[in-house]
Design a protein around this nucleic acid. Structure first.
Length: 511
DNA sequence: GTCGGAATGT
DNA sequence: ACATTCCGAC
């Protein structure tokens, strides 16, 4: 059938390739064992020869511009053997990534999108030994500038969302200890509080350690995922571009706090653990196995810290990990990360189907009728579940919060089914990390979190009444903006409150 | 241009 | 799952 196309231009050997073969494997692209669009985009982005077609946008980490949409579409079409491919279609595919949070659109800039690396499944870039060599790809994402730095939130600082008391926050980490307070370790599910990176990290942490750290694997990780072994990557750096996000961090170990010669690329790494809404991205699902040692992990963490630090990634991207030294700071969470609606929106039909049905009863649709009677075909969305709840909860001081939690919970239950992560047992003996002040942090975050959303009761109400979908959309749309601002130095986040300002000031001073 | 629903294909 | 294809709406 699609014979001739199969291998077409898989970079395999020929162009200095960047992605390991396994990147094309099922694990990375469940469902379709073919390269995924984002892989492809990344691929192009890494190649010098396509610079005029698509390239990293300077100034924004992970942002890229499709300079020649038609060409990119053509290339994509070629790869997928879809000669009819065009930008319109390709862009549709890209848009599907919005919900998955793999990408988002940079508003106002045409043909400009931005990778949400923290969300990007790292299955594709697991512990790459970037530090060793400096092979880096071509284009160049935003190179951190002094201004771009931001402080980390306390490692363990519970981000508002993460820390649902009683959930897993503190306990999970400490749990690893000898007496894992959470030995009982409740179902880990709650971990998925948010698909936020924080959770991801937790998860990540969990895995790693299980192997080495607790030699005594005794701690019955009841849920322990099968011993996971991550593929070890020894290949030398694969991305030779000093600019690309995969490049080596331009900022040389910023002030020794985190001297990690690793590239921001690693920032991607975190994601590798990330639990993404889409199973497809979840590296740990079944087959995949990775392996690495503590050292590696350390490096990884450091790099992560570095990345976060240097590339103003969401602090949440940073794992809460004992022993890691990070500059304390008020957190500025990127809304992007915090927004937690990773719900697949699939509202009930009623659209075209019906439309068409009415229009042409006469023919076709021989396939549809298979199993589903018809009108009864309603897709149940997790989100909708929470909806009623939210509406019910007229008071909602915490509406938003609860909702989010609910949503997450719901999602977790649903999607999490297949992906249950064992609880953490910190790899290393947990060394209490001096956390500046959670309170402050939380407060700050909190503020900023809602700064944009909790303006007025009215809005809240509106929100409540708003269809879940819209709500989500709204949130989503807001996020990037906020982020933009934060980068612009407008300190939108901090602007939320005095604390925020102070923090901002601190940051500035620091700079 | 961009967005996203819907149907369909693999 | 992850597109691809259409397409109406903004």
């Amino acid at each position: 059938m699609k014979a001739g196309c199969s291998i077409v231009e898989k970079p395999e050997g020929g162009g200095g390739y960047q992605f390991p073969d396994w990147a094309y494997k099922t694990e990375s692209s469940p469902g379709s064992r073919q390269i995924q669009l984002w892989h492809f985009i990344l691929e192009l982005l890494q190649k010098e020869e396509f610079r005029h077609v698509i390239a990293w946008q300077q100034g924004e980490y992970g942002e890229f511009v499709i300079k020649d949409p038609d060409e990119v579409a053509r290339l994509w079409g070629r790869r997928k053997c879809k000669p009819q491919m065009n930008y319109d279609k390709l862009s549709r595919a890209l848009r599907y990534y919005y919900n998955k949070r793999i990408l988002h659109k940079t508003k106002g800039k045409r043909f400009t999108y931005k990778f949400n690396f923290s969300k990007l499944a790292m299955p594709n870039y697991p512990f790459i030994n970037i530090r060793s060599s400096g092979v880096v790809p071509q284009s160049a994402p935003p190179v951190p500038t002094a201004s771009s730095r931001f402080h980390f939130p306390p490692l363990d600082a519970h981000s508002p969302s993460d820390v649902q008391p009683g959930r897993f926050s503190a306990s999970s980490l400490s749990a690893s200890g000898p007496e894992s307070g959470g030995t009982t370790d409740r179902k880990v599910e709650p971990l998925d509080l948010e698909d936020g990176s924080a959770s991801d990290w937790h998860r990540a942490m969990d895995f790693i350690p299980s192997r080495n750290a607790l030699s005594g694997g005794g701690i019955g990780h009841q849920k322990r995922k099968p011993d996971i072994v991550l593929p070890l990557f020894t290949r030398p750096a694969m991305y030779p571009d000093p600019h690309s996000p995969f490049a080596i961090s331009p900022v040389p170990g910023r002030g020794g706090v985190l001297n990690v010669p690793i590239s921001p690329a690693l920032s991607l790494t975190p994601t590798m653990f990330s639990y993404s809404p889409s199973p497809g991205l979840s590296p740990f699902t079944s087959t995949s196995c990775f392996s690495f040692n503590p050292e590696e992990m350390k490096h990884y963490l450091h790099s992560q810290a570095c990345s976060v630090f240097n590339y103003h990634l969401s602090p949440r991207t940073f794992p809460r990990y004992p022993g890691l030294m990070v500059p304390p700071l008020q957190c500025q969470i990127h809304p992007e990360e915090s927004s937690q609606f990773s719900i697949k929106l699939q509202p009930p039909p009623a659209g075209r189907k019906n439309r068409e049905r009415v229009e042409n009863n006469e023919s076709t649709h021989g396939s549809a009728p298979t199993s589903v009677p018809s009108p009864s075909r309603i897709k149940v969305e997790p989100i909708s579940e929470k909806d009623p709840e939210s509406l019910r909860q007229s008071t909602q001081e915490k509406e938003e919060q609860s909702q989010e939690v609910d949503a997450v919970r719901t999602r977790t239950v649903e999607e999490g089914k297949g992906t249950v992560f064992a609880h953490p047992s910190p790899p290393w003996p947990s060394v209490p990390v001096s956390i500046p002040s959670d309170e402050t942090l939380e407060g700050t975050e909190d503020n900023e979190d809602r700064s944009g959303k909790e303006p007025s009761v009215a809005e809240k109400k509106e929100d409540a009444l708003m269809p879940p979908k819209l709500r989500l959309k709204r949130r989503w749309n807001d996020d990037p903006e906020a982020r933009e601002f934060s980068k612009t130095g407008k300190f939108l986040w901090n602007g939320a409150g005095p604390q925020g300002l102070a923090a901002a000031a601190t940051a500035a001073a620091d700079a």
